[in-house]
């Protein structure tokens, strides 16, 4: 159901979640549940790759916010990989996401969390 918007992979030990397309009220809750089910259980760092996201609304922000909160609490390092411009960058900046959470480069972010 959700594979259109979210896929899971590994980058070394790091868990890589790739989001793609438009994330909004219609699919964000389901995507959130899928990510929660599949990640953060190994103790390794988590990367959320948003570079292929073409639209992100406040429901998507809500999803990322709670994901970051959960992983922070469990001490799991997390980074959001976001393009320098684009819809995802705009929305996250508007919502004042912490700069240290966001990275533009996948490999550098992978190093930071491993």
């Amino acid at each position: 159901m959700t594979e259109e918007w979210v896929t899971f992979a590994r980058l070394g030990r790091t868990e890589l979640v790739r989001l793609a397309g438009e994330i909004d009220l219609a699919n964000a809750p389901e995507i959130g549940r899928e990510i929660q089910r599949r990640t953060g259980h190994s103790g390794a760092g988590v990367l959320i790759d948003l570079t292929a996201v073409s639209f992100l609304d406040s429901a998507g922000v809500r999803l990322l916010d709670s994901l970051v909160g959960d992983l922070d609490r469990s001490g799991t390092p997390i980074r959001l990989v976001v393009g320098e411009t684009g819809a995802a960058r705009m929305t996250l900046q508007l919502c004042a996401f912490r700069d240290d959470l966001m990275s533009t480069d996948l490999d550098r972010a992978a190093n930071e969390v491993s």
Binding site: L25, D57, A87, M90, T91
Partner: peptide, 20 residues
């Protein structure tokens, strides 16, 4: 492009509000 992104976001949020 920037206005387009902005309008799309604003319109989506407004419609989501109406629905929710």
């Amino acid at each position: 492009g920037e206005s387009t992104q902005a309008v799309l976001l604003a319109c989506s949020e407004a419609v989501a509000n109406a629905i929710e």
